[in-house]
Every structure is written in structure tokens, then in C-alpha cells.
């Protein structure tokens, strides 16, 4: 058997992502784990911009560029079309950003999850509307700077994993580029499950997060190790498994490296630390671990 990481690269070089783009790394890792028997759906976002200018494409699998809020139903339509034709060995993959998932596509995604249509939905979460010039989304973390929250985001990041778990879909998981083997394992696992699979993937964005172009993987690791973004999976909306035991570094290590958090006051950092600790406690409780 060929290791996932030794399979061909299905996001071709020459794509138009910014230097150091975490999202491009993420899509590359996902597509590699998916393999060539895949149909992908992308939406107007960085995915479209990265994908290339007509008549070129960076995607190594057949890809449909759908509308912003309908990544999930487009994919579900294709999946059902394949099912009707009796084709069982092709997986349908939907890529959407946090805007297209947390905000505008939420209702459409909810409908697909309710029907349990057979797709893998990957939310590429870069915590804002980065493609249109860095505006706040409901995924932007507390106190983060964006173009529309110049004094920092007053609201907390929406917990999309809990929303998905409330649909009792067979499989939801968090993943991030800093843990590529974990990420590809989760994609491989999702491929073996029928129904709506949801992957919430944190992808650092050097442009929107105001960071140098070389630290995206590092931020991704720090997000996990500081408990800002724990790695876990939820099966059937109720079985929680924590995949990585974090080093529990202080959140400051993660925040201090990003320009979007540069203006943070001491009490705001403490608030973020408290939130992370509280969420971790809740997650451990759900995973059946005490304390």
C-alpha cells in the first residue's frame, strides 16, 4: 500500500495563491489524501482565485465552481447523480471557506447534513473574508483585527463543530495543516464513511493574519498546542475523541506572532486564555475525560 503522503500531488504548481498560503497547503494535503477518483466543488473565494485563470486550472481532479453559499448542495447533487448512475467509487468533495460555511452557506450545509447526503465537506477556515479584502466573519476570533473590525472583533468565534454535531452526522473532525499526517488520516477515514462528513480545517492566512509568509505551519501547530484549536473528532454527533494531547502552551505564544492581535490589551489576552481553558474543559468532559 502506498502511504497517503506518497500519492501524487493533485493541486498543481503554478496556482495563484499568495506566498506562504496555508489554504493552498491545506487543499494540497486534502486532495492528495482524496486521490484521483474525486470530484471537487469550489466556491467563489480564494479557492477560485487559486484555481487559476481560465483556461487553466490548478486542480488535478474534475472541479466545479459553484456559487458562494451552495458548496454543500452542489456536492450533494453530484453525489446523488453518481448514486443514480450506480457509480460508487467516486467521492465528492466540497471546499468552502469560513464565510461560505459559518455565515452564508450554513443553511444549505444544514440541509445537506439533515439529509445525510454522501459528501465530504471541508471548511477551509482562515477566520475571515480574506479574498475580498479581510472582513470579519462569524469565524473571526475575539479581539482580532479585520478591515471591518478595526478595533478588534467584539464577538467570539462561532463553534461550528457543535452546530454540526447537533445534526448527528456520522463524522466531523477538526484538522489543521501543522499536523499533516493527522489531517490526511482524517480524510482517509472520512472516505470510508457514508453520509455527510465535515472537516473543520484551520488554515493560517499570511495576508489576513498579518504574518510573515513563512510561519503558517508554525501558527497552525501553535494553535493546537495552545488549545486555541484542539484536534478532535465527533462521530454520530456524540462520540468525541481527542486526537492530540496538547502541550498547553500559553495562548500568548500564538497571539504574539500575528499582526491582527498586535493591539491586544493584557486583559484581552487573559480573556482568550480563559476561553481556551474553558473550551478545553468542556471538550474533555464530552470526550469522557475528567478535569
Amino acid at each position: 500500500m502506498v502511504l497517503t503522503e506518497e500519492r501524487p500531488n493533485l493541486l498543481r504548481p503554478g496556482h495563484a495563491a499568495c506566498a506562504g498560503c496555508g489554504l493552498a497547503t491545506g487543499m494540497k494535503l486534502v486532495l492528495q489524501a482524496m486521490g484521483p477518483r474525486t470530484i471537487a466543488v469550489i466556491v467563489p473565494s480564494c479557492e477560485g482565485a487559486i484555481g487559476g485563470v481560465y483556461p487553466y486550472t490548478a486542480y488535478g481532479v474534475p472541479t466545479i465552481h459553484s456559487a458562494f453559499e451552495i458548496a454543500a448542495p452542489t456536492a450533494a447533487g453530484i453525489a446523488n447523480g453518481l448514486k443514480v448512475q450506480g457509480i460508487t467509487d467516486i467521492q465528492v468533495l466540497a471546499f468552502a471557506g469560513d464565510g461560505g460555511t459559518f455565515d452564508i452557506g450554513l443553511q444549505a450545509l444544514s440541509g445537506v447534513a439533515k439529509n445525510n447526503d454522501d459528501i465530504i465537506y471541508v471548511c477551509l477556515d482562515n477566520e475571515g473574508y480574506m479574498n475580498t479584502g479581510i472582513q470579519v466573519s462569524s469565524s473571526t476570533p475575539s479581539f482580532a483585527w479585520t478591515g471591518t473590525t478595526p478595533k478588534g472583533n467584539p464577538r467570539r468565534k462561532k463553534n461550528i463543530m457543535e452546530i454540526m454535531a447537533a445534526h448527528y452526522n456520522p463524522y466531523s473532525a477538526t484538522a489543521t495543516i501543522g499536523f499533516p499526517r493527522d489531517l490526511q488520516q482524517k480524510i482517509t477515514k472520512a472516505k470510508g464513511i457514508r453520509g455527510t462528513k465535515f472537516i473543520h480545517m484551520l488554515v493560517p492566512c499570511p495576508t489576513g493574519w498579518r504574518t510573515p509568509s513563512d510561519i503558517s505551519p508554525e501558527l497552525s501547530v501553535l494553535a493546537v498546542e495552545t488549545n486555541i484549536f484542539p484536534l478532535y473528532e465527533v462521530e454520530d454527533g456524540k462520540r468525541y475523541t481527542i486526537n492530540h494531547q496538547p502541550r498547553r502552551l500559553p495562548v500568548r505564544e500564538y497571539l504574539s506572532r500575528q499582526g491582527r492581535f498586535r493591539h491586544l490589551k493584557e486583559e484581552e489576552i487573559e480573556q482568550i486564555q480563559r476561553d481556551a481553558d474553558e473550551e478545553w474543559k468542556k471538550l474533555r468532559y464530552r470526550a469522557g475525560l475528567s478535569g
Binding site: 504548481p13 503554478g14 496556482h15 495563484a16 506566498a19 481560465y54 483556461p55 487553466y56 486550472t57 490548478a58
Partner: peptide
Amino acid sequence: IPISYGSTEVIETGRWG
């Protein structure tokens, strides 16, 4: 529906750096 058949590999993004 416009369909892209070409590969972005023809674009020499190496020149950006």
C-alpha cells in the same frame, strides 16, 4: 459552461519570488 482544460503549470510563479 466554460471549462478549463489547461494546467496552471504553464504559469511560472517562480518569477514572483
